[in-house]
């Protein structure tokens, strides 16, 4: 056979081709318009978010602490941190609360391997959070040079210190102010309660792979 070219169809072309054939669509054909996203944000008083957050958070098994301002944070955490190995994130807010000045706290990591080792050995990881969602008791963590991922994940206890001003009503409000999280970060994680499983007999056990104990410190004025 002469001059016969073997045309290699890539899996990508094959799949998109099949889809278009089955749906009767042409390549590049734009979709019909889709209704605007439905975000339901309750018009409740922002002053209520803190109490609502505490209520939802404690229902999940978290422990909430209210600090009037940044100078109340250290005293509130002193017993919890005593004699523990602690890793803190690079969030400036933790510095302004004085957490990074404590002798048992390691912070300022820029190297992945060192961070990993420290987190794997730590008893407690302290972070801030970009937002907190009142309706569900959720921390919203955007990965950045200030917030590494493993600090809220590897140590058995996680403490998040959050200014009250970062409280939002719910997931819907979060998505209304962050319509495209990927533009801000490679990883946005919503943390709603301690790590848990019910895989054996549907019995709830806390602290499987992530922290089994979580605390929220809400700072009223910052």
């Amino acid at each position: 056979m002469v001059g016969r070219e073997v045309q290699q169809v890539t899996p990508r072309e094959a799949i998109l081709g099949k889809i278009r054939t089955e749906l009767g669509r042409a390549a590049g054909q734009h979709p019909a318009p889709l209704a605007a996203p439905a975000l339901r944000i309750p018009l409740s008083d922002r002053n209520l978010y803190k109490d609502l957050f505490v209520q939802s958070f404690e229902k999940l098994g978290g422990k909430a602490i209210i600090a009037r301002n940044t100078s109340y944070v250290l005293p509130a955490l002193s017993t919890l941190l005593e004699g523990k190995r602690v890793v803190a994130s690079n969030a400036p807010f933790l510095r302004s609360c004085g957490i990074t000045d404590l002798p048992q706290v390691q912070s300022g990591f820029t190297d992945r391997e060192l961070l990993r080792e420290a987190c794997a050995a730590a008893d407690i990881g302290i972070t801030s959070a970009d937002y907190a969602l009142a309706a569900t008791g959720t921390f919203v963590m955007l990965a950045s040079p200030r917030e590494a991922r493993l600090i809220s994940l590897l140590p058995p206890t996680h403490i998040a210190v959050i200014p009250r001003s970062r409280m939002l009503a719910s997931l819907d409000e979060l998505l209304s102010i962050l319509p495209k999280p990927a533009e801000q970060t490679s990883s946005m994680v919503l943390i709603t309660g301690p790590s848990r499983t019910a895989d054996i007999e549907q019995i709830l056990v806390r602290g499987v792979h992530g922290p089994g104990e979580i605390h929220a410190v809400i700072v009223e004025e910052s």
């Binding site: 569900t136 959720t138 950045s144 490679s186 019910a198």
Partner: peptide, 24 residues
């Protein structure tokens, strides 16, 4: 699935770690 308003972790992941991110 389980009656949870949100599961414990919801990860929204877009690509490898970016400039300056310590881990990922």
């Amino acid at each position: 699935a389980t009656g949870q308003p949100l599961t414990v972790y919801t990860s929204f992941l877009s690509g490898p770690r970016r400039e300056g991110e310590v881990d990922g």
